[in-house]
Amino acid sequence: MKNECLWKSLYKYRFLLKELISRDLKIKYRRSFLGYLWSLMNPLLMMWVLTLVFSYIFRFDIPNYPLYLIIGQTIFGFFSESTTVAMMSIIDNAPLLKKVYVPQFIFPLSRVLSSFVTMIFSLIAILIVMLITDVPFKLTLLALPLPLLFTLLFSVGVGMLISAVTVYLRDVMHLYSIVLTAWSFLTPIFYPISIVPANIRWVLQYNPLYYFIDYFRQIVLYNTLPNVQTTVFCFELSIAAIVIGAIVFNKLQKNFLLYT
């Protein structure tokens, strides 16, 4: 999957990509009374419940805990949802692949992008929490697209990788939910980094989502701009995921039709 071919395919099939994203969004909210409002209400309701539990029962002493929590929820929730739906994208679209030629990477990509659209609506929930908790809106917010882009690219890479592997090994469907559960507990979504024992804190250094969430929090919660080194490192993580995902996908896609 050479870069030139990839971009040519994206441009050539851009209308199909748009239709696939639209289809996924319609299916997700089909027969739902509130529809897209769930993208706003779900993170707010979850934040409210978890804030009650961890602020008053476990008493995590984190300044502006609701905002701290909803940022972690939003980023990890997007990654979890997008990669989970991308995982089944090739298998779900096998009938179409057998009838007409379509670049196969379009399917995991469309699933991740449809989840990204949903997450954009969830950002309204973060703005609401900022207003309620009197967090000032400063120019640092202009850097917000950066952590969103890093998370998107990383999710696309992981989505392509596991969608390709799942075609050959269906056990991945069951294993991945366990991986995500473990991953969520190894990511400081609802707890402060300070409670992580020093002897195992090194685990965070190998968790890309920790860096993306922390980047987002620095901009929104602490009104600071991450330094250039942090930005470059996050960019390298996201590009590495895309490259690895594309290589694995390209290597395995030749026999997809034989296993779907």
Rank of each mutant, 00 (worst) to 15 (best):
I200W: 02
S155M: 02
L141H: 05
N199H: 13
K251E: 05
S155N: 02
E81Q: 10
V220K: 00
F79Y: 10
L97G: 08
P145G: 06
M1K: 00
K26D: 12
V165S: 04
F107G: 02
L169A: 13
S55R: 13
P43W: 07
T51I: 02
L237T: 09
I71G: 01
S177Q: 06
A240H: 04
I189L: 06
F256K: 03
R23G: 03
G159M: 01
D61P: 04
P43L: 08
V102W: 04
K98T: 13
V179C: 14
A143Q: 05
G245A: 06
V232K: 05
I132P: 09
Q104H: 07
I27F: 13
I27E: 15
F54T: 04
V172N: 14
Y176A: 04
S110A: 15
V172M: 13
T83P: 05
L45P: 12
F79Q: 07
L17D: 04
F15L: 14
V248G: 00
S80N: 12
P197T: 01
P136A: 07
I120Y: 03
L257E: 15
Y68C: 03
L69Y: 06
N207Y: 05
S22C: 13
D171Q: 11
K138C: 11
Y259L: 06
F256V: 05
L180F: 10
R23H: 08
V248C: 02
L109C: 11
Y191E: 07
S110F: 07
M130C: 11
I247C: 01
R59M: 13
R31Q: 12
